[in-house]
Amino acid sequence: MLSHLVIGQSLYFGDSLFYIVTFLLLMWIIKVVAWGPVTKMMQDRADKISNDIDSAEKSRNDAADLVQKRQAALANSRSEAQTIVSDAKTNGQQQREQIVNQAQADVQTMKQNAQKDIEQERQDALSNARNDVADLSIEIASKIIQRELKGDDQKALIDSYIEGLGKQHES
């Protein structure tokens, strides 16, 4: 076949044209059927992968942020709880002291009132008793006087008795 080419007796240049046309047609068909869609798909895939990597990075950062916030909130709430507890403790302490003081004061007042009452009662009882004794004495005296007033010898006894009462009353 090389001899044909060299001698040129039946050189089929048409084939060159045929192959060029065929090749260009093939290129066009491949571009429409496969090359365009496939390279587009490959590009899409590459984009998707890079996007996925980016979004994974982003969500990882978000998660880390969230963890940090969580920890901060936890620490905050812990200290808050501590404050609340200590506040409650001091409040309780104060209240207890207040109650105890109040109770002591109350007791003091009650004691004083009781003492006053007792004194009052004693005074009343004493004065009552004095009156009773006076009445009784007068009754006894009247009875004795009614019955034995005649006997002068008994007069001295009565006197001394009354005198004794008066002394006792004075003391």
């Binding site: 089929y12 240049f13 048409g14 045929f18 192959y19």
Partner: peptide, 13 residues
């Protein structure tokens, strides 16, 4: 079209 073609080449192509 005034050009010489080789049958073998055209068919194989």
């Amino acid at each position: 079209l005034g050009l010489t073609f080789s049958t073998a080449n055209v068919v194989s192509g």
